[in-house]
Every structure is written in structure tokens, then in C-alpha cells.
Design a protein around this nucleic acid. Structure first.
Length: 397
DNA sequence: TCTGGGGTCCTAGGACCC
DNA sequence: TCTGGGGTCCTAGGACCC
């Protein structure tokens, strides 16, 4: 069981990432309210946030709140570059780095005391390096668990550092409003508040069964554990992605069917390119739709064989779109998207293992390695020199 | 010009298999 | 005639995150 005793997990989170990159690269934007993205706010500088501007807010509303704000178009490649540079510093700081998104990560710094100093000293140096070498503000939360580190960085923002020592965890956590919990969004917060629960302390006082009956099994258990400061999830290098998607907002204007088909072709083209670039195959094609009233629907189809072939995927997606014709007719359409799921390795070979049930798992895997010339096994996928081997359903030893 | 674009995980029912 | 339990896969929807 993973139960670290010391506060040695860092959650590092760049502040207003896109907006900070823009301010770094263009002096005229510094100390000014900056909004990235015109239709919808993708990021707002802290000067802009002071006017009440928030991420995902409509552009019109944002300009109403702050007419003097400078609106810039997103430069995704610049953010991607900046992210790579920041992650290089993360990797240089800790042996285990778990990326959460383009601008945040967990770092496990246990066992580094002799080499790098205390977790706090490591965090201080990390912040200084990102500021000095890359010109970007970053906030770091330090705690015994991932969840607490994440909450700590959220509380410390912007440009801050907060260490939560183990003996202060519950006092820190219990005083917070439920909305601060990672995993509690609008719907869950609403359910809790309607029952008169507004702080983490009140959640912690609830029996697990009550939370499960309110929120469902997984969410109830999860929240019950977190509110008591229990979070056994280790920092681990991220698994491979499980889906690849692309989508396009269409606005409220009525679109003729051939325009939808054109949009679909563009999306499938984009998404299959990314699929092939990642050297993956997909077996499931998902069509995503959003309607005039903002409700959503998905339609999916699973193929018999994995593919990265544009025409196969396009034909499948087109079929799903045709099937959705009546739905679109009735409810109008404001967004169309395609996602590819059930991803396989391009070179993955499905290997049906039949083996002696008395053999230990490790011995079985050794046998597979021996047979196929070595390689590393990751998540059930054995990647060899030239080919990958999927090892399905290994039984308990 | 109300509401972008990219993801993850969970739930629940039905088909199908042993 | 009535009665099982356990498991996987697929589809659809929903909540949440950045």
C-alpha cells in the first residue's frame, strides 16, 4: 500500500498559461488585461481576471466586463513549445513526473532530501527556475497526497507556494468549500448543497453509504476518502491516451446536410492524421453532436478490425451521421465532432496466450520475452524491437 | 454571436458466452 | 417449468477537468 508519511508530492501548475506566454512574448501585453481567444475565453491574464473574466466565458461577456482588455488569437504551437520547456525542468527536478495537462504535473520528490533538499526547497527552486529560465509564473502545492497537493496549488494561486504538512491536512481541508474538491463540479456541488452540505468538513462527517446513495458508487467512495485526506494514488508516468478526437462548433445557423458532410470530412482527415502520426489504430468511431438547446448525443460504431485508414473511418462516420439525420432535423445542430477510441498499437500483434495455470505470471512473461526477443511490457502491451505484442487477460498468478 | 476544443472516467442496460 | 451466477463487449449518456 502506498502511504507516504511526508509531504513530498508537488503539484506544479502554470498560472494563466496561454496568457502568460503571450505576455512573455509581447512586452506591450505585460501588466495589461489580456484575453486569449475571441469567441470564447481560452485564458485570461490575472489583470483580466480581476475584472471577473473567467476561462470558457463568452467573448462578448468578457469585453463587456473589461472593454480595455487586449484580445489575442491563440498560438497553440507557442504554448506547446513552452510546455515542452517547462516539462524539461520538471523532469530535471524529479524522477517521476506525471503530466496532467499541457500546463500542470505532479512530481514525486520522495527520497531526494540528500541530493536536492526538502520538498519545500525543491519547490522554491523549481519556481525560480521556471521564472528565470522560461519567464513564466508557476504555482506549486506540496503535500502528502496528490489530491492535497492539487488543492494546495489551487489555494496558493497565483504565483504562489503552499506546503501542507501532514499534521495540518485536515484543518486545511475541512475549512474549504466543497467546490474546491478536485472532482466536484457544478452538478455534484448542487446535489450536496441541496442537502445543506457546503464544506469539506460536512462531507467528511457523512457516512460513506450516504454519499454513495447521493452520488453513485465510485463518486461516493472517492469523495468519502478524499474528504478524510485519504488518497492512495501514486504519482505515475501517464498511460497512453485512450481516445483521439476533433470537433467543430457550428453556431446556431441552420446547416444544410452537405455542409455537415464537408465538416465531417475535415474532422476525419484531421483525426486520422493524428492517429497515424501517433502510430495507433482505432476500432471504435464516435460521432458527437450538440444541439440548439445544448443537449448532446453520441453515436458510435465498433469495427471488427482496428484501422487507421481514412476511408474506412470516414465511411463509418458518414453512416453514423446519416443515422442521426432525423435527430439533427428535429433538434438543430451546433457542434459536430469525431472521436476515435479503442486504440491499439499500430504494430501490435494480438497474441493469444495459452499457458500452464500453475506457472507464475512473471515466469510466463519471461517466456514471452524469451520467445520474442525481449522488450518492455507496459500495460499489457509488450513492445519488442520491431513489433508490439498485446498480451490479453493474464490471469492472477 | 451565449457557451471552444481536447480529454478522462463512471454507469447502466442488453447481447452473448460459459 | 422454473431457476442461477459470473464475465466481457458494445452503445449511450453524463460528470468533470484544463
Amino acid at each position: 500500500m502506498f502511504v507516504p508519511a511526508e509531504a513530498a508530492i508537488l503539484h506544479a501548475d502554470l498560472d494563466s498559461f496561454y496568457a502568460s506566454v503571450e505576455q512573455r512574448d509581447a512586452p506591450r501585453l505585460r501588466r495589461r488585461p489580456v484575453i486569449v481567444g475571441a469567441g470564447v475565453v481560452l485564458a485570461a491574464s490575472y489583470e483580466a481576471k480581476a475584472f471577473g473574466i473567467r476561462t470558457a466565458m463568452g467573448g462578448r461577456e468578457a469585453r463587456r466586463l473589461c472593454p480595455q482588455a487586449i484580445v489575442v488569437s491563440p498560438r497553440m504551437s507557442a504554448y506547446s513549445e513552452a510546455s515542452k520547456a517547462v516539462f524539461a525542468v520538471f523532469e530535471d527536478t524529479a524522477p517521476t513526473v506525471e503530466a496532467l495537462s499541457i500546463d500542470e504535473a505532479f512530481l514525486d520528490v520522495r527520497g531526494l532530501r540528500h541530493i536536492s533538499g526538502s520538498p519545500r526547497q525543491i519547490a522554491v527552486r523549481l519556481r525560480a527556475r521556471v521564472r528565470e529560465e522560461l519567464g513564466l509564473p508557476i504555482t506549486v502545492g506540496v503535500a502528502r497526497t496528490k489530491f492535497l497537493a492539487k488543492v494546495a496549488s489551487a489555494v496558493a494561486k497565483p504565483d504562489g507556494l503552499l506546503v501542507v504538512p501532514p499534521e495540518r491536512e485536515l484543518a486545511f481541508l475541512h475549512a474549504l468549500p466543497i467546490e474546491r474538491l478536485w472532482g466536484v463540479g457544478g452538478v455534484t456541488a448542487g446535489k450536496l448543497r441541496r442537502r445543506g452540505i457546503s464544506t469539506v468538513r460536512e462531507v467528511a462527517e457523512l457516512p460513506e453509504a450516504t454519499l454513495i446513495s447521493m452520488l453513485g458508487r465510485a463518486a461516493g467512495r472517492h469523495l468519502h476518502a478524499l474528504a478524510r485526506g485519504y488518497d492512495p494514488r501514486p504519482v505515475e508516468v501517464r498511460r497512453r491516451r485512450r481516445s483521439i478526437g476533433a470537433q467543430r462548433a457550428l453556431g446556431r445557423r441552420r446547416r444544410p446536410p452537405d455542409e455537415l458532410t464537408t465538416a465531417l470530412i475535415g474532422l476525419v482527415d484531421r483525426v486520422t492524421r493524428r492517429l497515424r502520426k501517433a502510430r495507433r489504430l482505432c476500432r471504435t468511431v464516435v460521432l458527437r453532436l450538440r444541439f440548439d438547446d445544448f443537449t448532446r448525443a453520441t453515436r458510435s460504431h465498433t469495427l471488427a478490425e482496428a484501422t487507421a485508414h481514412t476511408h474506412t473511418i470516414l465511411a463509418t462516420a458518414t453512416g453514423l451521421l446519416e443515422q442521426s439525420g432525423p435527430l439533427i432535423e428535429r433538434r438543430g445542430i451546433t457542434l459536430i465532432g469525431v472521436a476515435l477510441a479503442n486504440l491499439d498499437d499500430e504494430a501490435g500483434v494480438q497474441l493469444a496466450l495459452s499457458f500452464d495455470r500453475t506457472r507464475e505470471l512473471d515466469a510466463t512473461l519471461d517466456l514471452v520475452r524469451e520467445r520474442f526477443g525481449g522488450g518492455a511490457i507496459t500495460r499489457g502491451v509488450l513492445v519488442g524491437q520491431d513489433s508490439g505484442l498485446t498480451v490479453p487477460m493474464l490471469p492472477d498468478k
